[in-house]
């Protein structure tokens, strides 16, 4: 098999596996997987920027929140259809990421981290400041009746799973195509050696801006999806914690790999889920696991696979 075929087979296999999961796993895990897939889209969003372009953002919660509030507020106050609201959510994230990109890309490295962190903090405070509309930290509920996606009820287990699955499939396949395209290869070239990429005549700044916008928009789509599928919009999702989490997922799963985000989210979810069944001190276990993992799996879980099993992993 050629590398491209292997990659496609791998992604197809993962999607098939997720599909089989729905029909075989107990109801609890079906629900958990819906959540994991949505959050994996968020992690994919961050991975485009961090894993492939080498720009570490500590403020991705603002894009997630932009999608979430774009969808939530337009349903709540404009009464638009879910499809349109979803579009508004994605558009909000796209516009915000373009603005942030234009400003923040004047910086690099640690300064980029801080600038994105501060912008995200500003967005978080703005959500609180307009509490009259957003209900601040408390947030608001999208009623079941308001969550019909073009006649399709997303509040049932099956509805939720298949919407999450569909969106995740689009993202995984699109993401895989992106990183294998010449565009994706140029992003990696920028990550590896920005100076050299510039010498080769690439408009580095333009590529980085596009990466920020794509990354922010995908994260925003995850936010909108989260609000739609789980019926809740709140400021918690704009807080620093939700900027750190996707970074953790990506690093755990394997930065700069296509399957890393999903692995990272699932690993973290089930690590906490499983350990909390045995002890109330599951954070301790999670902490120890992170320390051990970073010591023995330097490039994340997919990184081990790449070095030990299949060097062709995208």
């Amino acid at each position: 098999m050629t590398v491209a075929r292997k990659i496609n087979a791998l992604h197809f296999g993962i999607l098939l596996f997720l599909l089989i999961c729905f029909f075989t796993l107990p109801a609890y895990h079906v629900g958990a997987l819906s959540r994991i897939m949505v959050l994996a889209i968020y992690a994919i969003g961050l991975n485009i920027l961090f894993g492939y372009t080498g720009l570490l953002s500590l403020g991705h919660a603002m894009f997630f929140a932009a999608g979430m509030y774009g969808l939530g507020l337009s349903i709540k106050f404009l009464g638009v259809s879910v499809v349109l609201a979803f579009g508004i959510g994605i558009l909000s994230a796209a516009v915000l990421s373009a603005l942030v990109g234009l400003l923040a890309l004047r910086t690099a490295g640690v300064s980029f981290m801080i600038v994105t962190l501060m912008f995200a903090q500003t967005v978080y405070l703005v959500v609180l400041y307009f509490g009259e509309f957003t209900r601040g930290d408390e947030g608001f509920v999208l009623q079941q009746a308001e969550r019909m996606l073009a006649g399709f009820d997303v509040t049932t287990e099956a509805g939720r799973y298949f919407v999450a699955f569909g969106a995740f499939s689009i993202c995984l396949i699109g993401f895989s195509a992106l990183v294998q395209s010449s565009f994706g290869k140029r992003l990696v070239a920028i990550r590896e050696n920005e100076e050299r990429a510039r010498m080769l005549g690439y408009d580095v700044w333009r590529y980085k801006l596009l990466a920020v916008i794509i990354s922010g928009t995908v994260s925003g789509a995850a936010g909108a999806l989260y609000a739609l599928l789980f019926g809740y919009v709140g400021a918690t999702f704009a807080s620093v914690q939700y900027s750190i989490l996707p970074l953790l997922w990506v690093l755990l799963g394997g930065a700069g790999t296509t399957i890393g985000p999903l692995i990272g989210v699932a690993f973290m979810f089930y690590l906490i889920d499983a350990s909390s069944a045995y002890t109330s001190a599951y954070m301790l276990i999670a902490g120890l696991a992170l320390v051990v993992l970073t010591m023995f799996a330097p490039r994340g879980i997919a990184g081990i696979l790449r070095t030990k099993v299949s060097p062709w992993l995208p």
């Binding site: 930290d137 408390e138 947030g139 608001f140 999208l142 009623q143 789980f230 019926g231 809740y232 918690t236």
Partner: peptide, 14 residues
């Protein structure tokens, strides 16, 4: 905490 209640309530209904 209200945000936990509000975030959980939709699931309770579903």
């Amino acid at each position: 905490f209200s945000h936990v209640v509000i975030g959980s309530a939709p699931r309770a209904a579903e």
